[in-house]
Design a protein around this nucleic acid. Structure first.
Lengths: 334, 334
DNA sequence: ATGAAAGCGCTAACAG
DNA sequence: CTGTTAGCGCTTTCAT
């Protein structure tokens, strides 16, 4: 900037004013400075500007990784949510700092805020870290989390209606004549727990027994789903439907069933969760509970900005919708 | 920091030294200061530190979006590549600034570098912007691009061996008895163009005719693939195989074929590209050309750091591997 | 072992 | 309309 000033024969103040489009600076001088800056590929140093102005147009988006369970960033749902948040942030003219932090040390995510790196934090996936998140919120860290709304929760969440999603999916499976419905998903995770509650509610309403042997606790990793479904078959638990907590799990389940000579939906009906793009093109097309990904990303960003504006932001629950395709047809009588 | 200094009864210099672990500061003072900082949730202001030190540990990762073609960030391959780059950067202790910039104005990506926001740029997807990228490289912007290696290219690329990928896939389809192989992909894109060259090479080597009517130029969007394949069928072009330039396109194609009463692989064999996780669980399991995503992300980051170290970095071509599953079996004689 | 002072690149009073 | 000056939070000589 000093260079530009020297070359233009003015002071740095004038350059600063010209470049920020201040109306007070002479028209001719402004164009001269602007030209000069462009020709030198000069851009304002945002770091210095931020320091001076005590401002910041960056949001940290944190995708925790669980080093122990090998939970990584590869599930299409989370990845798409990331893209959706990126778009919403871009629309508002904010930069996005993407951070992978160890889930055991979420405080290090807060450091991005404490250190002035970002004005707030969006966390994608709440996993097991309810308490840590509450601590951050208690410290007034501007924070929005994609996940389930829990009791005594101090932080703001945005998420799908997991209870209803689980309920609607299970009701549907019962409607098509299924009685022994397996549940695939890690019930330790708040979102999955609520889907499981919806699942139990639907069973109870229809006076169907709840068999713990039908609940298979697996994380969102395809390879584990294969093993889990194989185990279900080998143990001869007896089941005529699967409700899986992600489409990837559901597709893996279908594939494993077929390898075992079981037909979908004739022998076993399957419903997934998320409605990722490929669900419609799967064979058979996958019945699933749709989550509003784009609306979700936008809502996360909206909530964060409300928070920053000093408003007390309530958790948001987005509607889910059952999409009935071919994997959940009625049972064939044989 | 001034607060800490006051509370600890020392000067800011001492606090700075203590917090950066300088050996010169008194043991007792250091612990006192460290404790104080922790209890106040104080973190060094990285912006100010960077300004003073003229350094920076941030890399900008740019995912261009093509507003005209509706090309968005949703293809699983690009999303996973993003995750892979994020991991590689995290390992090196660098932050990742994720930017969605309009593909028509890639210069704005360079602004992140010019403005000291990032030490370098990783661009995921070269699309049609060869010339713009060359300009940036000519300006000495540290830049690494995921894409195809082109002639007279000044910037550094990392990419798969697209020619070989196209050739191997096509050879395989010919080996299983196919003669009329449709090509699905936008040949205007450098990567796809090279796959297409490999495709032509394989056909030529087997003295098979190259029918331009079999080339369907579509971008990486599932919905378009459905229309394209439908068009191929309606026009009665006559084809017994499809080579698609992404797994999403391939899966959509399989789905569309089936809707039209065509069997895969009996009537039409299909080979995809990328080998995304779901390819193995598709029905039938999808034959595809595997790209090394994790190695790719790592290589992008490695190349950028070499560049930053002042080395002249050559383009890297990663091997691809044909994964034969069930969608490319031999043609059934009827 | 610690403090005082200067300066990284920028902006915003305040003068002129 | 433009220049001078001070200071954002930090590190680092140079003294003490």
């Amino acid at each position: 900037m000093a260079d530009i000033a020297r070359l233009a024969g003015v002071s740095t103040s004038t350059v600063s004013r010209a470049l920020s489009g201040s109306p007070v600076v002479n028209e001719e001088t402004r164009t001269r400075i602007t030209e000069l800056a462009r020709s030198l590929n000069y851009t304002i140093n945002i770091g210095a500007k931020n320091l001076r102005l005590q401002q910041n147009r960056t949001v940290a988006v944190v995708v925790p990784y669980d080093s122990t369970s090998g939970q990584n960033i590869s599930d299409p749902f989370f990845l798409r949510m990331l893209g959706s948040v990126a778009d919403a942030l871009t629309e508002r003219g904010f930069d996005m700092l993407l951070s992978r932090v160890d889930a055991e040390q979420l405080d290090s995510a807060a450091a991005l805020y404490d250190g002035g790196r970002a004005v707030g934090i969006i966390l994608i996936g709440q996993w097991h870290h309810h308490d840590q998140l509450n601590e951050l919120a208690a410290r007034q860290v501007p924070l929005v989390v994609w996940g389930a709304h829990l009791a005594q929760q101090l932080y703001c969440t945005v998420g799908g209606d997991n209870f209803s999603g689980g309920e609607v999916a299970t009701n549907h499976l019962i409607d098509v004549g299924r009685r022994r419905i397996a549940f695939l998903g890690d019930v330790e995770l708040p979102e999955v727990a609520q889907r499981h509650a919806g699942y139990r509610e639907a069973l109870a309403r229809h006076r169907l027994p709840i068999d713990p042997g039908l609940v298979v606790p697996i994380s969102f990793v395809a390879e584990r789903a294969r093993a889990a479904v194989q185990g279900l078959i080998d143990r001869k638990v007896g089941f005529d439907a699967i409700f899986a907590c992600s489409d990837v799990l559901a597709m893996t389940a279908v594939s494993t069933l077929r390898e075992n000579g079981l037909q979908v939906p004739n022998d076993v009906a399957v419903v997934g969760y998320d409605d990722i793009e490929l669900a419609a093109y799967f064979n058979p097309p996958l019945s699933t509970v749709r989550q509003l990904i784009d609306a979700g990303g936008r809502a996360l960003v909206d909530s964060l900005f409300s928070l920053l504006a000093g408003k007390r932001e309530l958790p948001k629950v987005l509607p889910t919708e059952l999409i009935i395709r071919a994997t959940s047809g009625p049972q064939r009588i044989r």
